[in-house]
Write a protein that binds this DNA or RNA. Structure first.
Lengths: 252, 252
DNA sequence: ACCTGAACACCGTTCAAGT
DNA sequence: ACCTGAACACCGTTCAAGT
């Protein structure tokens, strides 16, 4: 097991022997963890559930992973490795638009697609610094596109952070699922919105019918906001601005 | 205790008697939880630590709050209530710029200031749907500014989500503190970045000196990216785009 | 050498029992 | 009526003991 998930992530993510018993490898732990997280959610991903699923003692898991935190990071890497960076960079530009803009668009949409299909990986993405082969591939693609656009030095840093901050930030906020699982909490939020004081919140109350369940901080369900169209709207905003900055900086 | 924290958040956040024993109210539970979270971090905020700090039995806490999840939301509301929406909306515009743009800028900077000063509230903000008086006040301010800019209907929804997605999304990703607390993990990330294959990640490796510790996914420490300047850079991008959209839509 | 059961030091939450 | 100790059903992690 040389080119497996854990070996890909980094040497510091696994310890001990590579092959413990027939059919049980560190990679299989990560893959099983991914399955549990995807199917049963964050709270269900426990070391004991993992060892049960693998038909092994609880302590045996720690011969294959160094800690649950690193396991979570390895799972996040596994999810993000589904982002097809190459395909995203290949796609063609709309007319009148430079190719690097199309690349940033496709990569952003692809990242969001993968994250939205794995809502339970949200808590890992939001609470750990993730620096793995999968994030490096995405970063490399985005940085390459921005360099094509003429960005360098501090402008490159800021442009990359703006793109990443919007793409990952917006998506992570969209998919956060914890509260959405409690009926009591959802009813509480609904009641709070029903009873808002028009004098205290004049703009909010007069636009509530329009914004409710479609806007951040004003919804009872997790998932895409704005009927799923706000992300694209905001992304075009970001891309348009990057294109303007690029022109000023002399890029295509 | 009528206008306290919990009463402000919502009736569904507290149960039982308002005054349990001299000096012990639901509000005090929330305030103590906020202190523990701020000073000792996420993992230190346990019901037992809370009851110890209040000099009360563990079970007594549940006469004052309905669950730890709602307590966390109440703490997030307490943090976000420090956002001075009124002051942010008062501030003056730069020359040649409409006032609603200045309002969106000041409100964004103010939100980020408060969140950055409370990095440990990150996990609550990232993992719960928060809809409380504090978020309603921020939403009301942002929506008001966007209406001044001529936004309405679906455009208002998307513009609000783009602003919120960038401001909260970027800031939440910046301050996430969990990994940063482990030396082992930081060294692992540093080593991973040192050993990146230039053939697999050509853009990343050639810009690594420039991006390292300044860019998302390429850092070993939590906190503001881009030397603290990327947020403002990205915010001006968002504001510029909103202004363009507004003109097309006929706003000022 | 590798895995196990059992334990350690915790969690959030509940509830019969006290006063 | 209000609070308590104790328990319940869990956690992540460790380690002496097995084979």
């Amino acid at each position: 097991v040389e080119s497996g998930v854990l070996a890909r992530v980094a040497p510091w993510l696994h310890t001990g022997p590579v092959q413990v018993k027939p059919g049980l490898s560190p990679d299989q732990v990560v893959e099983t963890a991914h399955t549990i997280l995807h199917e049963a959610g964050e709270d269900a991903l426990t070391v004991r559930a993992l060892s049960d699923a693998l038909g092994v003692g609880t302590a045996a898991i720690y011969r294959l992973i160094v800690s649950k935190q690193l396991l979570r990071i390895a799972v996040a890497d596994l999810v993000l490795s589904q982002v097809d960076v190459r395909a995203a960079l290949r796609a063609r530009a709309r007319r009148g638009e430079p190719r690097w803009i199309a690349r940033l668009r496709n990569l952003a949409v692809e990242v969001r697609r993968v994250l939205t299909e794995h809502p339970h990986s949200h808590s890992v993405l939001a609470s750990e610094l993730i620096c793995t082969p999968a994030t490096a591939a995405i970063a490399d693609g985005a940085i390459g596109a921005l360099r094509e656009g003429g960005f360098s030095g501090s402008e490159l840093v800021h442009a990359y952070n703006a793109w990443t901050g919007f793409v990952f930030g917006h998506t992570v906020l969209e998919i956060k699922p914890r509260t959405a699982e409690s009926d009591e909490l959802r009813h509480g939020i609904a009641g709070f919105l029903d009873d808002l004081d028009p004098q205290a919140y004049p703009n909010l109350t007069s636009e509530l019918a329009n914004l409710r369940d479609r806007a951040f901080s004003l919804r009872t369900h997790a998932g895409p906001v704005g009927g799923g169209r706000s992300f694209d709207w905001g992304l075009e905003m970001v891309l348009g601005s990057l294109r303007n900055r690029s022109k000023r900086a002399g890029g295509s």
